[in-house]
Nucleic acid binder design. Structure first.
Lengths: 134, 134
DNA sequence: CGATTAATTCAATGATCATTGAATTTCGAA
DNA sequence: TTCGAAATTCAATGATCATTGAATTAATCG
């Protein structure tokens, strides 16, 4: 059973279940706002928005924000709302913001959201990883 | 009791209870997004955004969107989130978007929100009032 | 293989939300 | 003063949400 074709197999490479990412055209504005209506998720978004190094986009780097199971819950909310993409690599997962999709569908929205969130001092912050001894 | 000074009295002119409008600096981004996470409220916002004539900003003009009591509920959500202002005049109330406040505190956000909502065909629309016989 | 690490799933909890309908308030007009 | 229109308040409902902790899955490394 399951009988995969090649494109399916690629989606499974290194993963357990197929991760659902909605088509951006199926995402309604109200869905986006619902996903943004939580300080932990806004904290994740802000952290992602200035994650230049890949390490900072790994799920395990957000442990400062909430417990693992709660983080999973919030990751799923962001992903199912079309805001983030999740890529599986071995035992780790990496998040990214779906910038191109969001900018095309909701021009200007993402930038102003991130700017607003960045300036909010009440949002939880992801701590910088301790610098490896050099 | 109550012992009003003049500025309080003005707030009461024509009204029953003092309408609470939060200081825009007390409004967190997550509060804004929570208020926007509902299609009826987005419908109200869109209708307000192109309400040039005062008639279109009167509460009673939104009856097409929901029942009176449900509308009251949604009006309060928008007002308490700092998105709208409500003015009492006789037996009517008038809504307006707190544009200047929002633009100062969350630059660019309101415009992109309205643009996104305007393009969403799934949002409920406020019907144009029937043209008076001419 | 067994242990470890990364992350999810599941069931249970209390809190908040959207909706309804009935009762109430307020104002203005007859 | 009584009536009607405008709008809110209140109590009740079911639905969804955020959170917790325990159990589970999956990949990697010894």
């Amino acid at each position: 059973m399951l009988n995969l074709v090649r494109s399916d197999a690629i989606a499974y490479l290194g993963g357990m279940k197929p991760l659902f990412h909605p088509d951006i055209d199926d995402v309604a504005p109200a869905d986006i706002f619902a996903a943004l209506a939580d300080p932990i998720r806004l904290g994740i978004l802000v952290a992602l928005s200035d994650a230049t190094e890949m390490d900072k986009a790994r799920c395990s780097n957000f442990v400062g924000l909430a417990s693992p199971s709660l983080l999973s819950y919030h990751f799923a909310k962001l992903r199912e709302a079309g805001i983030t993409h999740m890529r599986v690599e071995g035992t780790s997962r990496y998040l990214s913001i779906r910038r191109a999709d969001l900018d095309r569908r909701f021009p200007g929205l993402l930038d102003s959201v991130i700017e607003a969130a960045q300036r909010d001092p009440s949002l939880p912050r992801v701590p910088e990883p301790a610098q490896a001894k050099g």
